[in-house]
């Protein structure tokens, strides 16, 4: 009943009640499905096979599956655009943060040098009175 190209309906999980095609048969009751459902490994027990078998090549890509489903009159919503947008947004934020950190580090460096110079001067001042005390003794 389960074979490559078989039209199935998913009956478990958040993709339940959506149609898909068996793309590849994996080990022990597991198959790779794609279509309206997300492309993923799936237990046969979570699928309800339908009557139709579509012609698709083995290990077909998502686009090939979508084209095959379209011929049957099953439309698949495009999700790729949303994923691309989500992927780009956080990357941009990270770049800006790194730049700011680098600029702050540059600004801090001269301040540290100034502090070091002041401390050196203070140390010299402290040493002098100690010597005087020793001399008095």
């Amino acid at each position: 009943m389960i074979e490559v190209g078989r039209l199935v309906v998913k009956i478990a999980g958040r993709d339940a009640d959506l149609k898909g095609i068996v793309v590849e048969i994996l080990e022990n009751n597991y198959v790779l499905i794609d279509g309206q459902v997300r492309r993923r490994k799936c237990n046969i027990m979570h699928l309800e096979p339908l009557d139709k078998v579509l012609k698709i090549p083995k290990k077909a890509t998502h686009e090939e599956v979508v084209a095959a489903l379209k011929k049957e009159g099953i439309e698949v919503k495009a999700k790729k655009k949303k994923e691309a947008e989500k992927g780009e947004r956080p990357r941009k934020q990270r770049k800006t943060k790194k730049k700011e950190v680098a600029e702050e580090a540059k600004e801090i460096k001269p301040k540290e040098e100034k502090v070091k110079k002041e401390t050196k001067v203070k140390e010299v001042k402290k040493e002098k009175p100690k010597k005087e005390i020793k001399d008095k003794k």
């Binding site: 009956i11 478990a12 958040r14 339940a16 009640d17």
Partner: peptide, 16 residues
């Protein structure tokens, strides 16, 4: 899940 909060998982499968 479709029918989540209205049907249990077994009944959802049966309905589908």
């Amino acid at each position: 899940r479709p029918y989540g909060g209205n049907l249990c998982s077994k009944c959802m499968r049966a309905v589908i």
